[in-house]
Simulated scan of single mutants.
Amino acid sequence: MKKNLIIGIVIGAVLSAGLFLLVAFQAGPGMMMHEDQSKYDFDETIEVFEQQVAEAGWSVAGMHDMKEILDGHGHDVIDIKIYELCSSKYSAEILKLDDERFVSPLMPCRISFYEKSDGNTYISRMNSSLMAKPFGGVIDEVMQQAAAETEAILDHLID
Results as ranks from 00 to 15, higher is better:
M1Y: 13
M1T: 14
L5V: 13
I6D: 05
I7T: 15
I9V: 15
G12L: 11
V14H: 07
L15N: 10
A17P: 05
G18R: 10
M31Q: 05
H34A: 08
E35Y: 04
D43V: 06
V48L: 03
E50V: 02
E55H: 02
A56K: 04
G57D: 00
V60S: 00
A61M: 02
G62V: 05
D65V: 12
M66Q: 15
K67Y: 00
E68V: 01
E68R: 09
I80T: 14
I82M: 15
I82R: 14
E84L: 04
E84I: 00
L85G: 07
S87F: 07
S91R: 11
E93W: 04
I94P: 09
L97M: 11
D98K: 09
R101V: 13
R101T: 08
R101L: 11
F102A: 15
V103P: 02
P105H: 01
P108N: 01
C109S: 10
R110C: 00
I111K: 01
S112H: 01
K116W: 04
S117L: 11
D118P: 07
G119T: 10
Y122I: 09
S124F: 04
S124L: 13
N127L: 03
S128H: 10
S129P: 02
L130S: 03
A132W: 09
A132T: 07
P134W: 10
P134Q: 11
G137C: 03
D140A: 08
V142E: 01
M143Q: 02
Q144L: 08
Q144P: 08
Q145N: 15
A148H: 04
E149F: 06
I153M: 13
I153D: 12
L154W: 06
L154F: 10
D155G: 05
I158C: 11
D159A: 10
D159I: 08
